[in-house]
Write a protein that binds this DNA or RNA. Structure first.
Lengths: 136, 136
DNA sequence: ACAAGAAATTAGAATAATTATAATATTAAA
DNA sequence: TTTAATATTATAATTATTCTAATTTCTTGT
């Protein structure tokens, strides 16, 4: 359980102004034990539900993007038409349950080493992510 | 080079009605040597350019989705806000050049075997895809 | 501490992406 | 053929995302 004050400090330390909106978003995103997978819309609705305060959808977008850039969130590549995000920013992979449209983390150590025997001149690898689609 | 007549047959054999729009889309998608990575918008613009005929954007969506379901196209999971598709429907992986926003195929044999040491009860693996992001 | 200017942030309005459905075209049946 | 059934198209509606004017927060000078 992180206090409002701690979020304010963390935001300031990241040179993000600790606005009421951002603090609310932090409470929803980071006051959790488990990692959290969500879409912008999930988050938008949860803010209203959990904090009672309304934050505009555009601000949710802005904040999520700010947090992404700071490395507090990770974007997960799935070809659903809604973009998914993850509060687990460590290097890891995902199951995507196609039937239930639900994401599940796969720890890095649960995936054997991935060897890419091809390279593109002038480019370096930024990330390697595995997406395992599941069905019933 | 596949003829219009051949596309008509292929569509019929897949129980897809061979409409003028679909034939135009086939010409743009499948009259190529190399595999083709595209977004709906890319395709929409190419149809006008290559065939001179206009097909509505909604029809492009419809057709791409129909082709996906039939297995003639593959959707590629990237977290760009535009969905990418691939005419290469074999099992394979991708580089995504983040700077140039460009996709590059990685043949299956250029990626070592991927071992997933975790499973979800009641669910079976539908696909395993690797996305390697590249930067300068 | 306070005011003024600079910079960042918010949220309404605009745009872009995708889907639903009424109108049209294609096919199947008689 | 003609009609009925079904599939397809494309406009209109909806949903997702971004842009920007108005507002808020911060910084600096006093």
């Amino acid at each position: 359980m992180t206090s409002k004050q701690e979020f304010i400090e963390k935001l300031r330390n990241s040179s993000l102004r600790p606005t009421k909106q951002r603090i609310n978003i932090c409470e929803v995103l980071f006051n959790r034990d488990k990692t959290f997978h969500f879409t912008i819309n999930d988050l938008f609705n949860l803010i209203k539900d959990k904090t009672g305060e309304k934050v505009s959808l555009a601000t949710v977008y802005n904040t999520v993007h700010a947090f992404l850039k700071k490395g507090y969130l990770k974007e997960i590549p799935i070809n659903s038409n809604q973009t998914y995000f993850d509060t687990n920013v460590t290097d890891h992979h995902h199951f995507f349950d196609v039937n239930e449209e639900k994401l599940i983390d796969i720890k890095n150590e649960d995936v054997g080493p991935i060897e890419i025997q091809k390279s593109i001149p002038g480019k370096k690898i930024k990330s390697v992510e595995v997406l395992v689609k599941l069905e019933d």
